[in-house]
């Protein structure tokens, strides 16, 4: 099978723009679907993308989502300029959240974003620098079908 990148596209994410939250991930999902990748992998990638996109919207000033896909894997890198994550291990804990009361009222801040990303990716790398920003590299393998 062809291991070369068959698709690559970058998307801008504007921090604080809740009204457009999820738009980029919906586009990511539609693009991956159009590429003919297996539906369960597309769903997982889209969910991971959504949680990461919302994190940029909630906490960062600006972010870029870089989507690339081959027949074997979907790779999404989201890099933002924002406050960074102080304690990544703590933030990975389900239930831990730094969301504001306003965000919680909208149904965000369940403290499940990063754990949802972890569950829906086969590889996840998070690097963060306080006061600078965060970079997430997420890989979903397409041959591994999950419910």
């Amino acid at each position: 099978m062809n291991r070369e990148i068959v698709f690559r596209q970058k998307f801008e994410i504007q921090g604080g723009d809740f009204s457009r939250g999820g738009e980029v991930s919906c586009e990511v999902k539609n693009l991956l679907k159009e590429l003919g990748l297996p539906a369960p992998s597309v769903r997982r990638a889209a969910i991971a993308s959504y949680e990461a996109e919302m994190n940029v919207i909630m906490y960062a000033e600006h972010g870029v989502l870089d989507l690339s896909a081959t027949p074997l894997k979907i790779r999404i890198v989201i890099e933002d300029s924002g406050p960074g994550i102080e304690d990544i291990e703590l933030a990975m804990n389900e239930g831990y959240s730094t969301a504001t009361p306003e965000m919680r009222e909208l149904g965000f801040g369940a403290g499940m974003g990063l754990s949802n990303i972890k569950k829906n990716t086969d590889e996840l790398e998070i690097t963060s620098e306080i006061g600078k920003g965060t970079r997430l590299t997420m890989v979903v393998l397409t041959e591994r079908h999950q419910p």
Partner: peptide, 26 residues
């Protein structure tokens, strides 16, 4: 809670909620 629905909702289910803002669509 949106992330809870993301974690536990399943394809083809009906989602019952009081949230009305645009993010429920995504």
């Amino acid at each position: 809670l949106l992330s809870d629905v993301i974690a536990h909702g399943q394809k083809d289910q009906l989602w019952i909620t009081i949230q009305v803002h645009p993010n429920i669509v995504a």
